[in-house]
Design a protein around this nucleic acid. Structure first.
Lengths: 343, 343
DNA sequence: GCCTCCGCTGTAAGCGCTTTCAGCGCGGCA
DNA sequence: TGCCGCGCTGAAAGCGCTTACAGCGGAGGC
């Protein structure tokens, strides 16, 4: 509430009417005679009146705001999702509150506070425990879960993971790459868990033996680099190298690419590498990264739409949206590169 | 205000005290006898009481929230800045409201609305006209300008641009690269304008003739690619190629790199290319990108700190912070690459 | 034993809006 | 001429909290 701003009382006095009438004119509802309306409108303009969002929220029990909870903001994935969410939400004339949990203790309380300030909430991945999601549901806070399996009555928005992973891995099998290593942490995110499940599926479906357990790495370029470099060094000494690395996201794959380059392992001839997400640079590195395209912005905007349905349209039954992904074949899996991308 | 949540009245009744006492216990101020405090604390816990942020804001004329206005959220720069801002702001127990203007009409009204919902505002770059910034100042809304020159009494946070640009360009002159082309749009952002100014300075200081006008491009990889490709194609035909491209940010440089690769122009032998920002991929492409490192997260966190000083500590005199940048020499300017980065 | 002071607690007046409900004046009808 | 009804407007009751201020009881000083 900027100090300079006029209150509804000042406008009412200026226009010679009651505050109820000002409110009606300003909100555009309720019956007001045309010339009264005009007079009040003039006063509103003259005083540059802007109703206090707080007072309005308090009186109307509405916030005109939505929140989004994400783990952190590094890397392109989350910022793209938030981009989609912000854009769609502002379009619907709602404010956007953001909260990164950053693995912080006390994140639960912060989410609780956030929930008290908004009309609805998007919660991404493993930021908060199911218990809290359920509790928000009980409090009738509209919740959309993004990249996270359903909990209670909450909506969900997911990108397809498992069958794309099968497709990707079978494609690699088609290149004669049998000994594949999954890089990432299936326990760290539901998406990664699904990709790992698809990785296992592909082995099972093609009658192959159970693959090695995942090479655990966080989802950063640095983390991927370190994990892969350690593994590949050992491989050069004795373990032998796998035929290919199926990385849980593009950043890990980028780190793997760097590790391979450092160890002078040629990609894809000696070692194939694939990523996931199709972040912008995936097409720019060399060899260009084979990956799975995920509609990141659309994940965010879809979540915003679902939230709006609950908030404005009053929908109660949960909706579950699954967005399609697509295999993007480039050079790093062993495909011939034709102008960077294979059709 | 989740429907399930208890109000201060219910807590007061439960504890057998007045709402004033509950408020005092909850806020931790005011004199309360120890056993009363304990009793009320127990009731608060029992009912899971959480004060309504709205009611509190309204009564106390405070929001416990800060806002940030940015042009858009694509590319690593803005998301890194927001990352720094969000982290620091949440640390200070404030909520974070974000608003992307996206070159949208009506952005001014949105900023006005935002200003009414927060205790202070960070405004990045050329998102809103000076007039609006001045107006917010008049309304006593604390404002920190980020990557934008001072307006009125607002604080500013800037990264050093001009002298680093001079240093960068002189370094390229040192490689014997005399015919340099600036790629970007100096009119589109104050940062870019400063970099262009430094580019001109370097020519003047070394007694060189006025360089060619900037090759205009937006700040995306695609935009940079298209502009540069067009220019280089023409160059191959007749105009001749410049010795080097000084790009206004890394994404443009990445696009330039791709254009050069497509046209089979060897970087840096036939054409040097430099960027700005040192985004994560700058080190990963090949040739690795010579660039200027800008402390993106720190820009955001510094803005948060300045805002907190105004909001909590009540500072009134403007502060202007200039964060240092540093030249990062890699291979794309013509330096020998030693492990990707030159010391 | 009485008065004073002090520490604690409650009362109540807002904060700036929304919204219900009552009321006013006027035209139309009998 | 008397009534009813309707369109418009205002009074007032909250929304859930903070905080100034009043008030109450007990301890200490005389």
């Amino acid at each position: 509430m900027p100090k300079g701003s006029a209150t509804i009382y000042q406008v009412a006095r200026h226009a010679g009417v009651s505050i109820a009438t000002v409110s009606r004119v300003q909100r555009g509802n309720g019956p007001v005679a045309d010339n009264t309306r005009a007079k009040v409108a003039r006063s509103i303009k003259a005083l540059d009146y802007r109703p206090s969002p707080n007072a309005r929220s308090l009186a109307a029990s509405r916030h005109e705001a939505s929140g989004i909870v994400f783990p952190n903001l590094s890397g392109p994935y989350y910022s793209e999702v938030i981009y989609g969410f912000e854009r769609e939400t502002v379009e619907a004339r709602q404010s956007v509150l953001i909260l990164g949990t950053h693995g912080r203790d006390g994140a639960e309380d912060l989410v609780h506070d956030l929930a008290a300030s908004v009309d609805g909430l998007v919660i991404m991945g493993r930021t908060v425990p199911d218990r809290l999601v359920a509790e928000l549901g009980r409090m009738k806070v509209p919740v959309v879960l993004l990249a996270r399996p359903a909990v209670g009555e909450a909506d969900t928005v997911l990108a397809e993971n498992r069958s794309s992973a099968v497709e990707l891995v079978r494609h690699m099998f088609g290149h004669g790459l049998d000994d594949l290593l999954f890089v990432g942490d299936p326990d760290a995110s539901p998406d990664a868990a699904e990709r790992w499940a698809g990785f296992l599926d592909a082995h099972r479906l093609t009658g192959r033996p159970q693959p090695a357990p995942p090479l655990v790495s966080d989802f950063t370029e640095g983390g991927g680099h370190d994990a892969v470099r350690t593994r590949l060094s050992a491989g050069l000494d004795d373990q032998g190298l796998p035929d290919g690395l199926v990385c849980a996201n593009d950043e890990i794959a980028l780190g793997a690419l760097r590790a391979a380059r450092e160890l002078e392992i040629e990609v894809p001839r000696e070692l194939a590498i694939t990523g996931w997400d199709d972040i912008p640079v995936a097409a720019l590195v060399s060899p260009a990264l084979t990956t799975v395209r995920q509609p990141m912005r659309e994940l965010g905007s879809t979540a915003a739409v679902l939230l709006a349905e609950r908030i404005s349209a009053g929908r109660r039954e949960p909706r579950h949206v699954l967005l399609p992904t697509s295999l993007v074949l480039r050079a790093s899996c062993g495909c011939q590169a034709i102008g960077g991308e294979i059709s």
